[in-house]
Design a protein around this nucleic acid. Sequence first.
DNA 1: ATGTGACTTTTAGTCCGTA
DNA 2: TTACGGACTAAAAGTCACA
Lengths: 69, 69
Amino acid sequence: MQDWRKIVGKNVRRIRQERDITQEKLAFEAEIDLTYIGGIERGKRNPSLLVMARIAEALSVPLTRLLAE
Amino acid sequence: MQDWRKIVGKNVRRIRQERDITQEKLAFEAEIDLTYIGGIERGKRNPSLLVMARIAEALSVPLTRLLAE
DNA sequence: ATGTGACTTTTAGTCCGTA
DNA sequence: TTACGGACTAAAAGTCACA
């Protein structure tokens, strides 16, 4: 791969689905707009450190897990 | 801690110094402005995913190492 | 419940200087 | 060699309507 946006997107989506929660629920927990979460999951966004940290927190995983290749 | 900007900053600075290179050199390798590297190392900046990936690449470490707590 | 484009506001990131 | 400020430009953050 080597496209970090896609790697992060896949990780977020996979972990979210493991948790059995919707994008909407995750968006609410992370205090991020629903459509922005979708964009990240699709690899279309280049999120900042602090946004990724909020998502990891909402998913109850270490931040590094969002970056696992 | 829990301030990710500071965690990343400390990691970048430590690894850079282990490599014995200047901020200027790192900035050149990562194609990022010199002053921005400084800001990141001081924990004042909130870098994007792709910028952190370029820094990790320039330091020859996995991206996750920049986020190690 | 999610994908997508177009959009505005905020901030990331650059470039200049001084110390 | 690094810190830091100001002024700027590019891009991220965040919102909305509609499929």
